[in-house]
Design a protein around this nucleic acid. Sequence first.
DNA 1: TAGACGTGGCA
DNA 2: TTGCCAAGTCT
Length: 354
Amino acid sequence: MTELNKGVFPSFQQNLVQWYKEHKRELPWRLSQDPYRVWVSEIMLQQTRVDTVIPYYERFMREFPSMEDLAEAEEDRLLKVWEGLGYYSRVRNLQSAVREVVEEYASQVPRTRKQVESLKGVGPYTAGAILSIAYDLPEPAVDGNVMRVLSRVFCIEADIAKPKTRKIHEEILYELIDKQDPSSFNQGLMELGALICTPTSPGCLLCPVREQCQAYEMGRQGDLPIKSKKKKAKVVKLNAFVLTTSDGRFVIEKRPNTGLLAGLWQLPMTQIDAEESHSLANSYVVESDIVKQSFQVRHVFSHLIWEIDLYAAKVSTNEIPETAKFVERKDLEGYAFPVSQQKLLTYCLEEELL
DNA sequence: TAGACGTGGCA
DNA sequence: TTGCCAAGTCT
């Protein structure tokens, strides 16, 4: 950053902050600066679109209006409220961190980067967002939007997919951030990235900082930021089983409390690559043929793809694994299921397999 | 550092 | 249909 370049800082700040104040969206988490509400919204917004988050946020704040309410909640209820949002470890970490704040900080979200960032689930971005939005502290909050905007404004060539690139942007922001209104500045940067300075076809003609943008000046806004490609997701083949009993119940299993979809419920499933696709016999007493259904689910995660075949069978109520449960249709709404399982269950209900 | 960790929308 | 994304963090 040359001294000459720093000359653009004051007008960049003013243009951005003024634009933000005039054009910012009315979002439910923008109604107050309450640190807990800001915190919840930032966790939900990680890798998740605003439109998706809004109804989840409203419901979450109704269910857990205070940090004490969240600290005391049962994990199954947490997961049910988070059901469908994805990245489920977020809500466990949030509860764990909220408990720490309630117990160690007398229910006051701390005000230093070191303390906030040490909370579970709070990384460099979220720490900066909480400190700037709730407490008006001049801390950078570097997310994907911010790196895209800054890459263009300053023609930064660093690959924004690389972890260390975030630090480059933070260093710039410690100088660039508006010390008078860090909240509007940080949110303005993100709002600009979301509404104007978008990944493809940015709306430069509407941009409040066009005059300060080096990429625009050079006609390079379409080439920046640099971002390396992700690797392809691997396909995992699974069998799922609708196991019904003579008294009208069926089996669901709770997933392990770590790893993928931790703690959520599902139909019994076996991975196919091992030659034990029908290893059901180890866990259940099957009292009928195992009938393959003409129905498949293909579910795409960020790092893998599930291809699930569905089978139906009758089982006795005698033997059942620790993690399994016999339930009735009407009780399904009490359990949290990932989307892949909702697809299977919807089919089962429509075909009256359950 | 790179991979794990979800979901829905859009070109 | 496929790929990429959207306010990241943890290991």
